[in-house]
Simulated assay, not measured.
Amino acid sequence: MDDLFKREKYGHLSRSLAAGGEPRFSYEIGNIAYWSPGPDIAIFYDHDGQSIPDPGIVVLGEIGSGADALKKYDGTVDVTIEAVD
């Protein structure tokens, strides 16, 4: 995943998701979110007070703790996301 604005790691998906849910224009640290224009997925690790532009994001999940560990990686980092039952 690449870094964007020193607040999120994002990666381009090979195809769009059929994600439902209300678009949001704000985020919390630890949010795992889908941004449809990319189509990209992002993990927010810091907050800069900025809002998300149209069409917003759909939050898919959340990292309960430790998302701020991504701060120490300035550039690209490999990330694996798995669903938890």
Rank of each mutant, 00 (worst) to 15 (best):
S14W: 01
S14Y: 06
R15E: 10
S16R: 10
S16V: 07
S16W: 06
S16P: 07
L17E: 08
L17N: 04
L17I: 10
L17S: 11
L17W: 02
A18H: 08
A18G: 03
A18F: 04
A18P: 00
A19Y: 01
G20N: 11
G21I: 08
G21Q: 06
G21T: 06
E22V: 13
E22A: 15
E22I: 10
P23Q: 09
P23R: 11
P23I: 04
P23S: 14
R24I: 08
F25I: 06
F25E: 05
S26G: 11
Y27L: 09
Y27P: 00
Y27V: 15
Y27I: 14
E28K: 14
E28L: 12
E28D: 13
E28W: 01
E28P: 01
I29V: 15
I29A: 02
G30W: 05
G30R: 09
G30I: 13
N31M: 10
N31V: 07
N31K: 02
I32N: 01
I32Y: 00
A33Q: 04
A33I: 13
A33K: 01
A33R: 02
W35G: 12
W35T: 08
W35R: 04
S36N: 11
S36D: 12
S36A: 15
S36G: 07
P37N: 08
P37A: 14
P37M: 01
G38Q: 11
G38H: 06
G38D: 13
P39N: 03
P39K: 04
P39R: 03
P39M: 11
P39I: 14
I41Y: 00
A42E: 05
I43T: 06
I43G: 02
I43E: 04
I43Y: 00
F44T: 12
F44A: 07
F44H: 10
F44K: 00
F44E: 01
Y45G: 02
Y45T: 09
Y45I: 10
H47G: 11
H47E: 09
D48H: 04
G49S: 13
Q50K: 12
Q50I: 05
Q50C: 10
I52N: 02
I52V: 15
I52E: 08
P53A: 13
D54F: 09
D54W: 02
P55W: 05
G56S: 11
G56L: 09
I57Y: 01
I57A: 07
V58E: 12
V59R: 06
L60R: 09
L60M: 15
L60V: 12
G61D: 01
E62D: 08
I63P: 03
I63S: 05
G64S: 10
S65F: 01
G66V: 08
G66R: 09
A67Q: 10
D68L: 02
D68G: 12
A69R: 15
A69K: 09
A69Q: 15
L70I: 14
L70T: 06
L70F: 03
L70S: 03
L70P: 01
L70H: 02
L70V: 12
K72F: 03
Y73G: 02
Y73S: 05
Y73E: 10
G75I: 11
G75W: 03
